[in-house]
Amino acid sequence: MQSLTNRSRNVVNKKMNFWERIYLVAIFKGMWTTLKHFLRVMFGKSHTVRYPEVKRPFAPVWRGWHVLKRDEKGAERCTACGLCAVACPAEAITMTAAERNKGEEHLYREEKYAAVYEINMLRCIFCGLCEEACPKEAIFLTDRIVPSDYARQGFVFGKDLLVEGVEPEKRIDVSVRQKHIQEKKWAAEPAH
């Protein structure tokens, strides 16, 4: 079998010579190796990220806590078409559609909207098929981590936990994720 790295060695059961038998050389070599690591951390940089103060950026492929986006004017984009629920392999998404009344145009972008939209985070496998299925670019998986809870009921996230806020500072930036999905879609289509 071809080796994956060029570091592999064949095992030989040859008799050890004197210097190998007293082990001291090997011990000092090992100690030199660990000392190099020691000095590197002591005087150089360590690879540790001090978590609560410093946070590593998530990769664009990271899929966490879902968000239901609003449009620029603050109206919900979701039209309760149910494509996400159909696409969901874990059947974690349920929704109830309702018709938009007069005077609610600033709340909902389309004429039909989701009165109830629930994702069961215990069922969800965070595959991201819902965001690919969504024709309205309404649902995205974000870099937020779903928090833990003591009760199962606490993991059924309703609209209060999914829809982003209206105010600019409460909007959730999904541009990186959006671009990532878009690139994947383009790559899938041979025309581009």
Binding site: H37, R40, V41, T48, R50
Partner: peptide, 13 residues
Amino acid sequence: KFAAFFQDRLGPD
């Protein structure tokens, strides 16, 4: 602390 340094960690801080 030393154990951490030998293992490329930071240890208790």
